[in-house]
Design a protein around this nucleic acid. Structure first.
Lengths: 218, 218
DNA sequence: GGGGTAAGTGGACTCTGTGTCCGCTTAGCA
DNA sequence: TGCTAAGCGGACACAGAGTCCACTTACCCC
């Protein structure tokens, strides 16, 4: 069974892929026999229950057992779809991230193509900030160990940022990509926002300022 | 028993403290009865064994049990000094970080006082990169959950960076501190260095470039 | 130097979560 | 309506966390 079917999106899906990889549901693949109705229903129950759990409790306390209990399914059923709690969060987060990914490629400027790279980077920062603001528990739940960098979504952000950096004529863009993305780490956002009590706007201003300095206008 | 004695350095130790907090050993405190020789010996054994474990194995697989076994002590003895594996790594890392902390305050420029803030920030980036390069396993082992931001050492780096940002006349320095520090996350360094195969020098160049752009010369 | 005392020690024990296995159920199809 | 295998879920074994308590021994005092 592929990783995608098991809930943890494979890197290739978002990695770059022409038209956004496969945005359609997995079962559209003719090679896949067709998923049973009860399995589909269970998966939906799991996702719904998990979203609530992650939102209402400390993401680090969410175990496979709790998710299964909350979804009203057995442990093995849960394991059939997801290997661990963070992959459930990743799947959930995925839906929200895909919308942004679509906007980055096809949407209107400054998020989409057409605006100067510095402005697009600023817009990207702001959009990611919104994503974090709205779905912080999921973003935190999706972070287990070095998962942040191996997740398909991170690969997508990398490709996007790289494009902007190249377009902006910075030197050695490849060495700068992950530095540009580092202020968007969920754990960091949480610390700034709730530990330090910074407002969304102050963080946003700092990030747009950073974008402006990183990519010289022109 | 204080946190410091239990291995996890309290925030105040590094936070800023006049002469570097208390750099001398804990037992110099007259209020502390005096530690028994066997306890001191055990602690040293634990640290030595743990350093080797963290260096030679995946930091995430290091358990309290393994450390105790490797050090030749019982589990409870280990728990007496450290609450979890990451705090052992923190204690180990601490020794190396204190040297750098001393240099930042008392050392010669550009690391210490005297150089323009942009240059001092660059020097700080390079020194931190060296620390990561040399002690990456410990740095990774010290990272469990949101510990990065609650550790005493992180507080020290914050104070230092804040000073430089204020001196460099950037707008809203407090919102920029953690953004400036974010590219130094151990997990990120690991990804850049070993996942992406970037050389130390390319990362260094990107960071010094970043420092130059963030703090305008003058 | 010997005895008292409390700090220190270490193994055993419980608890929680993980991951797998296997017999039962039931959806999908002919 | 009956067949078949995908899907299901409880049970099980295992690993690591954290605690407890009876034993040991370093240190202090006489």
């Amino acid at each position: 069974m592929s990783d995608e079917q098991r809930g943890r999106p494979s890197a290739s899906v978002h990695r770059v892929g022409g038209p956004l990889g496969d945005l359609q549901a997995p079962q559209d693949n003719p090679a896949t026999p067709r998923r049973r109705a009860d399995a589909v229903r269970n998966r939906a129950q799991i996702l719904a229950a998990a979203e609530q759990l992650f939102t209402e409790h400390d993401p680090r306390t969410i175990t496979m057992d709790r998710i299964a209990k909350a979804a009203g399914v057995g442990r093995a059923t849960l394991y059939r779809s997801f290997p661990d709690p963070s992959s459930v969060a990743v799947a959930l987060l995925d839906e929200h991230e895909r919308r942004l990914q679509g906007q980055l490629i096809y949407g209107p400027p400054p998020l989409g193509p057409g605006a100067p790279p510095a402005e697009r980077l600023s817009a990207f920062y702001l959009a990611m900030l919104d994503l974090l603001e709205r779905h912080l528990p999921l973003a935190l739940g999706a972070e287990v160990g070095p998962d942040r960098y191996t997740t398909g979504a991170y690969g997508f952000w990398r490709v996007h940022v790289r494009t902007l950096l190249v377009e902006g004529r910075v030197s050695d863009p490849d060495a700068l990509i992950d530095i540009v993305l580092s202020p968007l780490a969920p754990e960091l956002f949480r610390f700034q926002r709730h530990g330090m009590g910074l407002s969304r706007d102050r963080i946003a201003s700092s990030l747009t300022g950073l974008a402006r300095r990183l990519i010289p206008p022109g």
